[in-house]
Design a protein around this nucleic acid. Structure first.
Lengths: 276, 276
DNA sequence: CAAATAGTGTCTCTAAGACAATATCAC
DNA sequence: GTGATATTGTCTTAGAGACACTATTTG
């Protein structure tokens, strides 16, 4: 009869075939464009980080940042590490999207991907600048889910335009999964991952789960509202937005200046514990 | 310059260290106990399937059913397969809980677990019987989350009682993660996985996501209500439950009989598409 | 002052919770 | 009839959406 220690010292973990495991990141940022009119607010556009692959497979195709899980880290830590490496920014929050493990999804072999959404605030990227040596670029995102389950994922950046076509497979437990009809030039199954990420993002924007992470510490309620509207592709009346958000924020006592209109109060996020 | 095919034929996937990947299943069933009083309804108890480990590591400890991912299947398929093998029942729905990958969580080495909740209806198990040769048993579940973040997970079966103590780590995106203070005799980090599963289950029971899967095709609204109450550990007034659920069900025209009180209409689930 | 955003008050409608009342069966 | 569940109706309250109105700044 073996003891546990004897068992473990004889245990050969490489007896069975094992997959490679990656964490892939759908990093979202909201970028604002200066308007022509000096007193009008900036416009917001949702954007996602893609990387032009320098090597095989899918050489010269655009892909999500990500990388292989290494010993001694959790999958979540791997996602944080990869985001940091690609954006130079440690994201405030990452959110699991799902595990993508269809056989054949990677021509190199048996590779399963754990996908995460990460939220990057525009100011944190501007501060640190970005490594343009690698082919990392922020693409503007349009994602239309029409009523009969067909979806167009449109990604554009400086003349480059990717159009992926997907169908909604099923919505279960508040999450929708997609099937790729046309990858639109995206590498691997990354169109599917991005669509799932957008679905998750929109869902969690409903209850303000992560909209704060797109902004600096202090923000106006209008800017917060625009974030939610940009993500969810909706518009809400300011009065109603203020009422709903009021429990999640606190005033700082500070105001914006020089905007060409009435100054706005700056707010901070109210942490869960302090609320109510 | 290599072509993609040349690259792939030279690609050595075992160049890097890889983890073993498992799918672990938190299978829930709701069991009813006959009451003494002929006209009173049965009582419901939430139960979870555990297996007494026959070999090292954690020999003779209770653990979740699960197994290693094999080539050619998705992680989700692996979860379905493992549930079928352990319960003889193909679950209607499985729901991802998360990836558990803390280094050291398995003494055999680098093993990461994808955890799923699966829902088993009592009648499907009774029909097919169960393989009692292996040490698989359904444990009654009590899970109390008190206000300051300390939780007791209580599992009982025929004299066996496991008590795990956990603390809530954080609630993000509607999901809570836990840290084990005392595993209560459960193998690996399975106390943490079960706690997360219960948290996910309770959350998705709110919007009726999976409560139907606990019942046969035709059911009464009272039985459905009891399922929700048992999972969420709450009570609601029948009148209000009926109003809320009304959009999700359709009448069959059939009635229950011989229950010692007014017969109840039998309902079927209304599929998403047909609703409204 | 004009144009823009900031912020408040209030009306309506809907959904949720509480509760009262009635219906129907097996014994 | 009794005791149990089944089912319907209504009152109250909380919250969401719509909308009108006021406030404040800069060119």
């Amino acid at each position: 009869m073996q003891t546990e220690n004897e068992f473990l010292s004889n245990y050969k973990i490489d007896k069975y075939e094992r997959p490679s495991v990656t964490a892939d990141i759908v990093a979202f940022m909201i970028r604002s464009t200066q308007s022509d009119n000096y007193r009008m607010d900036k416009e917001n556009r949702l954007s996602v980080l893609l990387i032009k692959r320098g090597g095989h497979p899918y050489k010269d195709h655009w892909a999500l940042p990500g990388g292989f899980l290494v010993p001694g880290e959790t999958v979540e830590e791997c996602a944080f590490r990869e985001t940091l490496e690609e954006t130079n920014v440690l994201p405030v929050s990452i959110m699991p999207i799902g595990v993508f493990s269809k056989p054949g999804r990677d021509p190199r072999g048996w590779i399963i991907s754990n996908a995460y959404v990460s939220i990057i605030s525009e100011e944190s990227v501007d501060q640190k600048g970005q490594d343009d040596a690698n082919d990392a670029q922020w693409f503007d995102v349009k994602f239309d889910q029409n009523e009969n389950g067909n979806c167009i994922l449109n990604l554009t950046y400086d003349g480059v335009e990717l159009n992926a076509v997907l169908t909604e497979e099923q919505t279960k437990f508040g999450r929708t999964s997609f099937i790729i009809k046309d990858s639109g030039g995206l590498a691997f199954d990354h169109a599917e991952i991005i669509a799932s990420a957008l679905s998750v993002l929109r869902n969690s924007a409903k209850n303000f789960d992560m909209i704060f992470d797109f902004l600096p510490e202090k923000f106006t309620l209008s800017s917060l509202q625009k974030i939610q509207e940009t993500i969810m592709n909706i518009t809400v009346l300011p009065a109603n937005f203020r009422r709903k958000i009021s429990g999640y924020v606190t005033e700082t006592g500070e105001y914006t200046q020089g905007a060409g209109h009435r100054p706005a109060k700056l707010y901070k996020r109210k942490r869960e514990k302090e609320r109510e």
